[in-house]
Write a protein that binds this DNA or RNA. Sequence first.
DNA 1: AATCTCCTTAAGTAAGGCTTAAGGTTGCAG
DNA 2: CTGCAACCTTAAGCCTTACTTAAGGAGATT
Lengths: 228, 228
Amino acid sequence: MSSRILLIEDDRNLGDQIVTHLKRDGFEVTWIQDGHEALDAEPKQHDLVVLDLMLPGAHGLDILKIYRETAETPVLVLSARNETSTKVRALALGADDYVTKPFWPEELLARIQARLRRPLLHAADVIETGALRIDLSARVVENAGQKVELTRIEFDLLATLAQRIGSAVTRQALVDRVLDPDREGTGRTLDVHFSRVRKKLGSEGARIATVWGVGYRLLPPDEKKSGS
Amino acid sequence: MSSRILLIEDDRNLGDQIVTHLKRDGFEVTWIQDGHEALDAEPKQHDLVVLDLMLPGAHGLDILKIYRETAETPVLVLSARNETSTKVRALALGADDYVTKPFWPEELLARIQARLRRPLLHAADVIETGALRIDLSARVVENAGQKVELTRIEFDLLATLAQRIGSAVTRQALVDRVLDPDREGTGRTLDVHFSRVRKKLGSEGARIATVWGVGYRLLPPDEKKSGS
DNA sequence: AATCTCCTTAAGTAAGGCTTAAGGTTGCAG
DNA sequence: CTGCAACCTTAAGCCTTACTTAAGGAGATT
């Protein structure tokens, strides 16, 4: 999914140039050219804001302040001013970066990507599928809102399947990943663990399908078990 | 807990100046003046790296690359070179910011703080959860309005869990962050500290849940311990 | 130097859960 | 249909991990 950038820049030429570069790199860009409009914009619905400080209608720092109160979206500030005090103020107000004009579009792009790279690391730690809710960072599983107590290995097995939902995962891969990697995939240990997971998950346990001679697979919510 | 900065800068004067400013603002600074040494340093044990590109012994970009493979610690690059291509390369390699020399220390400081702000954005200076109130800057904990006397390590452990409330934190991560980072995570020291924290917190101590075989986790106020 | 704080280690105990074994069941091939 | 191999399930033993208490010792304070 492409990232959505909110660009606030009154200069026609510069704005046009930025939009062109961003779109060429696969970003979706919303371009606002006026300060008042910027106050009504929705930073929450974008992944990053590029904000020029010198605008007609409203000052960039005021916009920054308001955005910070309503959203966590990273803000990259553009400005022609190169004074340290201005930079410090913008950064203290919550800006994530400060780029001085003039700049090459390549640098802006690189800085945007550096900003976007970070949040992805900490995002999407919860997998929801059907009645199951798997919180990877808390290591907690809920089935239809009911907490399910899983052991370390049981959780890791379920999480591994859930992360590749729909596709088969080989026994050996599961053994390597969850149990001791230096172990032969021969024993019945894996079966025992899955047996318990299925039981603990109740009716949802049926979604853990055995792929005969291969391994296991977590069925998507809509897929029924015995295909006729 | 004050943030730990790893500074890699060969210039004596500049380095000294930076260290002074950082310490004045309450950072703990490790200063390395040689490229080879930097390769053996432990970025994982710091909260942010300030990396000069022009070093004797090894090139900054190589150091950056290696750091990126082993740790997620943000890296802020310093350089005298102002070419866009260098900036783009550094940022593409995983740098989080790029500051061109010469610069005022205030700007560097502001940029460092902007970088550090992100991961802790959810965690304000004071964390309130259930009956607990944890003041990170004053290093004071209150339980239902009553002050709780915690030692340094006890506080740091609780604070670390609180900053990631609900998430499981591994033993190793806690040892790295709070105890000596060069220690194996095998000993029982951690258990002893948590035992004491739980006792000092009284009934709220039950919110520190053990994640068997993984680590510990601070339960959100609404989450009961053993789900039915 | 005596004392205090607090970090660490050790040891005993408790709990938790991984694994193996064994017997039953299911799916596949001939 | 029959045999075989893969898989399921249960139960029990044992090893790992965690909790607690007590004591030693380092560093700071008086």
